[in-house]
Design a protein around this nucleic acid. Structure first.
Lengths: 185, 185
DNA sequence: TATGAGTAGTCACCTATCTGACTATCATGG
DNA sequence: CCATGATAGTCAGATAGGTGACTACTCATA
């Protein structure tokens, strides 16, 4: 159950509402975890009950009221504990890879269409990540920022996300090229 | 529910028992999916009930008997259907990334230890994949194999797995270097 | 003046996946 | 002769994660 830890990690730098957190999980946090809003609200409720985050009601006149959450000392301790235990090895789990595995027995046209979709998606994601990275490091050079910046955690995970999406995009294009070349023969 | 499709894809080229399938899911298939033996036996039972795979009993005198499964016409049709529908975008979901996201608030020593573990793990995985790729393409050059080989699906997914693990390894090493440099300041 | 998009959040259910314990038999090494 | 590991498979139960439907208010725009 690392969703709870992903939530804690995302709340470390900013006080966020469930709604804002859901947005974060669609952007920056998406580099390392994914969750739907419903899961996040549920997790925040649990975390608050356990004292790992603290919420405070913010009354807004022009919009619906919201609850902002921040990580408590207990929450930070829980993250420390989590960071100290061995991380489970991660693996790709991807529909598209399953389809390519079966490529020799399937219609290449369908496959090429899926690969092209994914290449475009990964390209767009990569651009988002690049923009995020630029925003985080400001006008500093990357080396300088990584050595002296205050919040490098999100930057480093975003870098991993960027490389991942670029690799996805390149792989999709290579597979498309291979399938096309074989069809042409 | 793509586990069923991962199982079908894995059974396309070879007739396998549940036990052998579990081994495949620990090696080659691990490039795109992961599952425990229990899940595989359960899935095979379901697939057989739906007529997507067919099992046959093989009596062995020296070992316990086993059931070998192959994909039926219905199973292949199901894979075709699956390949034609849009693939869900995949995302990294990784404990280690969660930990790095929180890096600015945690003990760097713990983190560096986890990163070093992962780098070693990814390095080992990458070597396994390299060996698998060599085995698959035999003495042919890669370009030649991809153009004229018979079973390129598993090769292409393995290539993706190799790149993924190499990227993991490199990223871990970079993060370690950054954390060390900041500690030294 | 509807209509849709954005903000903010909740409920109920379902299914996928993981954990841990279990039964067998045979082969190998110490 | 006993322990270990490989082969081959099963069951029960827990938890994580996903799906779909829903409320309610405000703002912009067509």
């Amino acid at each position: 159950m690392a969703l709870r830890h992903a939530v804690l990690a995302a709340l470390l730098d900013e006080e966020l509402s469930g709604y804002q957190l859901a947005k974060a999980f669609d952007m920056g946090v998406a580099n390392f975890w994914h969750a739907l809003p419903q899961q996040l609200y549920a997790e925040l409720t649990r975390l608050e009950k356990e004292g790992l985050v603290a919420g405070r009601e913010v009354v807004q006149d022009t919009r619906p009221n919201k609850r902002l959450f921040r990580v408590t000392g207990g929450g930070l301790a829980e993250l420390e504990r989590f960071a100290a235990e061995a991380a489970k090895p991660s693996f790709i789990r991807d529909d598209l890879l399953v389809k390519v595995q079966a490529a020799d027995h399937l219609d290449p046209g369908d496959l090429i269409a899926r690969l092209a979709e994914r290449a475009a998606f990964s390209e767009a994601k990569a651009e988002q990540f690049e923009a995020l990275l630029e925003k985080m490091r400001g006008d500093r050079a990357e080396g300088e920022f990584l050595l002296h910046g205050e919040r490098i955690g999100p930057y480093l995970t975003c870098r991993r996300g960027l490389d991942f999406e670029r690799a996805n995009r390149d792989w999709c294009r290579e597979v498309i090229a291979v399938l096309r070349a074989r069809s042409a023969v």
